[in-house]
Design a binder for these strands. Structure first.
Length: 561
RNA sequence: UGGGCUAUCGCCAAGCGGUAAGGCACAGGACUUUGACUCCUGCAUGCACCAGUUCGAAUCUGGUUAGCCCAGCCA
């Protein structure tokens, strides 16, 4: 099944369709506006896929814009990684890559316009004083003593701020709105601050920088964005967004575009999402880096072997709404399995190998068998594998004393070795600890290919690797970094980490076909799950695999008896 | 306790006055050279709660409760 069609549309699509129907817009324009202060994670994927998807769906345009209005937090390292991640996800901004910082001139002019219209003033109050005068949630604020400055005075002061005459924090430009507004964002918000810093894009050209609330609506207006989609916490900012556009002359009424629309963020149950938390895990060295496979940053998911298609499917499946919610991780697992199962070759690998000797198989004989890479997808072709007297199977596929309904290998039982022969376990050897060291079997030469001419059935089919040709590799197993509740830090800043979130490296053996694999290539290891070649740890002569997701398993060993 | 927003199955989520879509998860069954996949079947007399309007309400009205967001010169 390819891109299955959704029968219901989300509320943003409804808004857009109304805007088109009622003639407010003809070509819609959306944007993804990250601040380059960290790496992108799966939550951003929702926004990227939503915004670019909407543009695509309605024949509009999608822009990538760096919202770099605060040089204290931003680095060019991050703009590079973000660009790569957005591209990898398949969002196409064509030639429309923008930087808010390139609009600083327009923003400065807009601020001057506000001052001229008496809608903004320079204040000398300190940050503490401004906070004090702002009032509280239940009490109104008090007028800024500097709010009575004349237009001329404000113009002169703001010009001097720009020229660098004042120190950081000594003056700010505030919008003149309403200190008694029940919406605290409207109590004369600061719209420009002084920061003598080298900006990642504009260098030392500016020493005053616009605040988000002032800059963002202007950025949208300049680019002709029609639908400015953001997350729920900006709902209270929407009146300010409209105020700026109207007072600075970018639009007539709040009904005109650009129009801000808010939706709920994506949370994964028990998984640490959120830039600042991931950042903390990285900085504290709890994980190896931004792309540690246990994380859900885009870089980590890519390294781990997730596909862009699987993330698109996931976002689509989760839906868009205004209710805060937390999606089951199982949903993500479903999406990646669904995407990979028809795209990837199946290969036999024993994560915890144990040797099997086929006693009645001739000592030096080798048989070449042809294996279909994916029974459901012919395009993936075939490969060959040698069958030999000594092979490895997974330790889980043998039990000395099988519990009920266990139908893999055990003394006296016959199973099928995938694509090869029926074998029957005759005996086994164990060490002093009771650990099985070698399993002895006999094979039935009549069953080559895995079918019995006499119509005899076996209940179990197990995978194997020829011992002389087994390729040694390492698999990285881990659980996601999880927390008890929504991946949130405790009040003291600590995190209740899942004890399983440790990475475990295990030696394994894989059939020789695996030697053709390159970094990021992924496979379905028969009965084990999907794995991808790690791009960082892998060397020329040793492969390291990250587990992308395990397969569903409906056989559980009985817990008691 | 000022303002804004949200409340439909374990988890997402449609629904917009005409008698509860779909997906994930789960359970049972069929099939199977991966106990996978695939395929069937089941899974809210109920839509946070209480009143009211209506022939009829998850959808409208009033009230209540719960959760999320806002007092950065962050975004």
């Amino acid at each position: 099944m390819e891109t299955g069609e959704r029968e219901s549309k989300n509320f943003i699509e409804t808004i857009i369709e109304n805007d088109i129907k009622e003639g407010r817009v003809t070509t819609i324009k959306t944007r993804f506006p990250p601040e380059p202060n960290g790496y992108l994670h799966i939550g951003h994927a929702k926004s990227i896929i939503l915004n670019s998807g909407l543009a695509e769906e309605y024949g509009g345009k999608f822009n990538l814009r760096f919202d770099d209005t605060n040089p204290t937090k931003e680095k060019s390292e991050f703009v590079e990684s973000i660009e790569a991640d957005v591209k990898w996800l398949g969002a196409n901004w064509e030639d429309r890559l923008f930087f808010a910082s390139n609009y600083f001139d327009d923003m400065y002019k807009a601020a001057v316009r506000l001052i001229e219209r008496g809608k903004a003033y320079v204040s000398d109050m300190s940050a503490d004083e401004i906070r004090e005068f702002r009032g509280t949630l239940t009490e109104p604020g008090k007028d800024d003593p500097y709010s009575k400055r004349t237009v001329e005075e404000n113009l002169k002061l703001f010009e001097e701020m720009k020229e660098g005459k004042y120190e950081d924090g000594s003056k700010v430009l505030r919008a003149r709105i309403d200190m008694a507004s029940p919406n605290i964002n409207m109590r004369d918000p600061v719209i420009y601050r002084i920061a003598h810093l080298t900006h990642q894009n504009t260098g030392d050209k500016w020493c005053i920088y616009p605040m988000y609330d002032f800059a963002h609506p202007i950025e949208d207006a300049i680019e002709g964005i029609t639908h400015s989609i953001c997350t729920l916490e900006f709902e209270d900012h929407r009146p300010l967004y409209d105020w700026v556009l109207i007072e600075a002359g970018f639009k007539k009424t709040a009904e005109d575009t650009p129009k801000q629309i808010e939706f709920a963020k994506l949370y994964l149950t028990n998984v640490v999402t959120g830039k600042r938390y991931i950042k903390k895990l990285v900085e504290e060295g709890i994980v190896d880096g931004w792309d540690d496979p246990r994380l859900v940053s885009i870089a980590a998911l890519r390294r781990r072997g997730f596909t862009p298609e699987s993330l698109r499917k996931f976002v689509e499946l989760c839906g868009i709404s205004k209710g805060n919610s937390s999606v089951d991780y199982a949903m993500l697992e479903y999406c990646i399995r669904e995407d990979l199962k028809l795209k990837r070759s199946r290969i036999m690998a024993c994560l915890n190998p144990v040797k099997v000797v086929i006693d009645n198989f001739p000592e030096d004989k080798e048989e070449e068998l042809v294996v279909v890479n994916n029974m459901e997808n012919d395009e993936l072709g075939t490969h060959t594998i040698k069958f030999t007297k000594e092979i490895y199977i997974d330790r889980d596929d043998f039990m000395k004393e099988p519990p009920k309904k266990y139908f893999r290998l055990y003394p006296g039982n016959e199973v099928r070795l995938m694509q090869a022969y029926y074998v029957t376990c005759t005996s086994f050897e164990e060490d002093e600890n009771g650990e099985v060291t070698v399993i002895h079997c006999t094979y039935d030469p009549e069953t080559k290919g895995g079918n019995s001419p006499d119509g005899r059935k076996v209940k179990g089919t197990i995978h194997w690797v020829p011992a002389p040709y087994a390729v040694k590799a390492t698999v990285r197993l881990y659980e996601n970094i999880v927390n008890e509740e929504l991946g949130v830090y405790n009040e003291d800043g600590s995190l209740n980490l899942n004890p399983n979130s440790k990475t475990v490296l295990t030696d394994c053996v894989i059939e020789p076909e695996i030697l053709k694999a390159k970094p990021y290539d992924s496979f379905q290891f028969v009965r084990q799950g999907f794995f991808a070649v790690d791009p960082k740890d892998t060397t020329d002569n040793h492969l390291v695999f990250n587990r992308i997701v395990s397969l569903k398993s409906s056989y559980k060993l009985p817990t008691n008896k």
